[in-house]
Write a protein that binds this DNA or RNA. Structure first.
Lengths: 152, 152
DNA sequence: GTTTCATGTAACAAACAATGATACGAGAAA
DNA sequence: TTTCTCGTATCATTGTTTGTTACATGAAAC
C-alpha cells in the first residue's frame, strides 16, 4: 500500500521553518530538507498557504514563511490543510452494494473506521506544532549534554 | 488512494457462507457474490483458512466451508487473518530519519496513529461475524414486513 | 529596463501496490 | 478416465502518489 507521506513531510518542513528565525525558506531549501524537489514542496505546501498556516512570496528574497504562531497550529490543522480524503487503507469493495449482506458488513466496518478516525483527529488536535518544536529542543539539549559528558 | 478491500470482501463472503447452510461454496460462487474472479477469492481466503476460520476442500463437491461458529469469530480475527500490515494511508516520508526534527514529527504521528489503530482493533474485537448475520436477518425481516404492508 | 530569483501550475513520467486475468498442477469424487 | 475444484505462479491492468520538467508570473537587484 502506497502511503501518503505529505503530513510527515510538511510537519518536518514547518519545524525547519521554525528554526529558521523568520527568514523565508525557499522551496529549494525545503526540498533538500525533505529530500525531494521544489515542485513537490510547492504543490504540497499550497494547502497550508490556503489554510493560512504559511505564506509564500515570489521573487528575489522570497520563499515560505510561517503565517501564525505554531502554538496556534495543531497537527489537525495541518492534516486538514492537506485536504486528505481518506485516512485508512481499508475500504469497501463496492460503495453502493445491492446485497443486504454486503451492506451490513460495510456498515459495521464504516462504524469502526469512523470511530478510529475521530480518535485520530481528536488526538492530532491535542498536539501543537510548537510542542514538537519544544520536544526537539529538549532532545537536542540532552544530546549536547551527553556529548560533553563523554568528552570529559 | 487505492484501498485494500479484502476485509470488506471476505466479510461479505463469510455472511454468504453462513446463509448457505453448511454446504461448501465454490470459489466461483463466492466470486460472483463479490463480483470478482475465483483466483482472487482463493488468494484472499487463503489467510482465513490458515487462521482456521474456514476450510477448503478440493475436487468434486469441494469448496469453502465455515470451520468455526461465527459467534466465535470477531472482525478482528478476520482482519488479523488477512495479514494486513498497515491500516493507514498515512505514512512517513523517511523511515529512519537522521534529522532530529523529522524524528520528532514522525514520533508524534506514530503515537497518534498507534492510538487510533488500537481503538480500531479494539472495536473490531467487539463485533462478531455472527452479530452481523443477526443484523442482516432483522433487516431482511423488516423489509419483508414493509413490502407486505404496502401490498395491503 | 534587464537580469535574476522565486513561486504557481500544468503536463507528463516513474514507481508502486492492489486487483484482475490466465494458466496449469494436484487432489478428489463421479 | 473424466470432471470438478482448489493452490499457486505469472503477468496484465488499474489507480494513486511521487518525481520531473517546463514555462508563465511576479518581485527585487543591478
Amino acid at each position: 500500500m502506497k502511503r501518503d507521506t505529505r503530513l510527515s513531510g510538511v510537519l518536518h518542513a514547518l519545524l525547519h521553518m521554525a528554526e529558521h528565525d523568520r527568514a523565508p525558506m525557499t522551496s529549494d531549501m525545503l526540498a533538500h530538507c525533505m529530500s525531494t524537489n521544489p515542485a513537490v514542496v510547492r504543490r504540497t505546501m499550497a494547502g497550508l498557504r490556503e489554510a493560512g498556516i504559511v505564506t509564500s512570496v515570489k521573487g528575489h528574497g522570497g520563499g515560505w514563511s510561517l503565517a501564525r504562531d505554531l502554538s496556534q497550529v495543531t497537527l489537525r490543522d495541518v492534516y486538514a490543510a492537506l485536504g486528505m480524503t481518506t485516512v485508512f487503507c481499508i475500504g469497501h469493495r463496492n460503495g453502493k452494494p445491492e446485497c443486504l449482506l454486503e451492506q451490513v458488513a460495510n456498515e459495521a466496518m464504516d462504524d469502526a473506521l469512523a470511530r478510529a478516525e475521530s480518535m485520530l483527529v481528536g488526538r492530532l488536535n491535542e498536539i501543537t506544532v510548537a510542542s514538537l518544536s519544544v520536544t526537539f529542543h529538549q532532545r537536542a539539549a540532552l544530546l549536547t549534554k551527553e556529548r560533553s559528558s563523554h568528552a570529559v
